[in-house]
Every structure is written in C-alpha cells, then in structure tokens.
Design a protein around this nucleic acid. Sequence first.
DNA 1: GCTCGATACTAAGGAAGTCTTAGTATCGCG
DNA 2: CGCGATACTAAGACTTCCTTAGTATCGAGC
Lengths: 101, 101
Amino acid sequence: MGGVSIIAKRLKEARKRAGLSQRQLGIEAGINISGASSRINQYERAVHNPDPSILKGLATVLKAPLPYFYCEDAELADLILKFSVLEVAQRKRLIDFMDGL
Amino acid sequence: MGGVSIIAKRLKEARKRAGLSQRQLGIEAGINISGASSRINQYERAVHNPDPSILKGLATVLKAPLPYFYCEDAELADLILKFSVLEVAQRKRLIDFMDGL
DNA sequence: GCTCGATACTAAGGAAGTCTTAGTATCGCG
DNA sequence: CGCGATACTAAGACTTCCTTAGTATCGAGC
C-alpha cells in the first residue's frame, strides 16, 4: 500500500527528531491532555488529518515550518528545513544564487 | 484584519496568475461541476478549508507545489515556487550552495 | 519470564466540520 | 438597460474529526 499521507510521515519524522512521545508533543502543542496521545497517534497513522491551525502548533513545537509537513519531495523538504534556520543575510544570498541559475 | 487563512490567500494568488475563474479551476481539478464555483469560493474566503488531497488537485492545475499553499513567509513561498521549476542539476547546485552557507 | 510504567494504538459515538444545492449579488460589456 | 459570466452566500445533508475509554506493546529492573 502506497503511503500513509505525507503529513503522517513528516510528523513522525519530526517528532522522532525532537525526541518527544506522541503524548508529550500533543500536550506541548496545547492539545487537551486527555486526548493528546490518541490524536497525535491518529495523525501519524493518517486515521485523521490535522487541519493547518492544529498542525501549526505542532510545527512550532517541532521547530519546523508548516509547509514542511506537506512536502512529498525529499529535496524540497530538506531545502525548507534548512532555509528556516538561516539568518536573514544568508537567506538573501541563497535567493540571489537561485535567481542566477 | 488580519487574515484570511494563508491557504485562501495563496489560492487566490495562484488562480489569478493562471487566469482562471473559480468555477474553471474547480472543474479542471476534478470537482463536481455543480459545486465547483461555490467550493472554490468558500476556500478562497476561508469559509471552509480544503484538505490536502483536494488542494493537491488544485495545485496541479495551478502548477504550484502543494507546500506553497501553506507558506506564510513570502520569501519561502518564492523559494518553493522557483525551486519547483528548476532542472535536477540546478536543484543539486542550489542545495550544495545552501549546505556551504 | 514477570511486573510495572510508559508509550503506542484502536473503536465508537458525540461534536464539528465540509459539500451540495439553490439561489442572490455584482461585474463587464454591448 | 439587459444579458451572461463570475462571485458569493445560507442551510441542511453529509463526512470527518475529537473525546473517551480501553487494549496492546515495549523496555527496564528484578
């Protein structure tokens, strides 16, 4: 079977990177404590899809930009993650470089 | 007032660029003809939020990557759009450049 | 290999959202 | 103005998510 949704995959990926449990992630993102574990689990298994406003909170905890979670292409996902930690001046240089390609 | 959701904004932006009506966009993306106009309108006004699977269809018609529609940061939005039209070799060069920053 | 706590996972109904339908408002132009 | 195309809206049918309660699985220590 092809794939769980891309959100599910990226979410799990980012949560592991952050070293959090499903429950911890949910709580830190402001989800009601009693449903936190179940909801994050449902998201990671693509039983349900978090809407952008929820995912934004998770993204903040996981220190990744929201668009990252919708990225099927691995290269683009990588680009987005790395871009998000660049300084303003470095971003400018990167964009200038790209415009010159 | 602050803002309609970022999806709404980017959707309208991209549809205008493509020169399509709300109805046309919906139909080309495979939405049932009788509800196409109303649904795209609801998305652009953030009355309702399209889920990723629907938005993917719209993204294809509008020739933009899915993550673009979730991008609040204008620079990152621009980066994503431009990256999506690069050749494989150019993408590689861009990523190498970024890794060296 | 047993126990215990933590973590992962699941079913099901109530709660909250979307989609469809039908229709009104507005715009552009002859 | 009159007409077609486009934009927009309300509301009920319909679909999906969120909460609750509970089971399964894993790992560490004994």
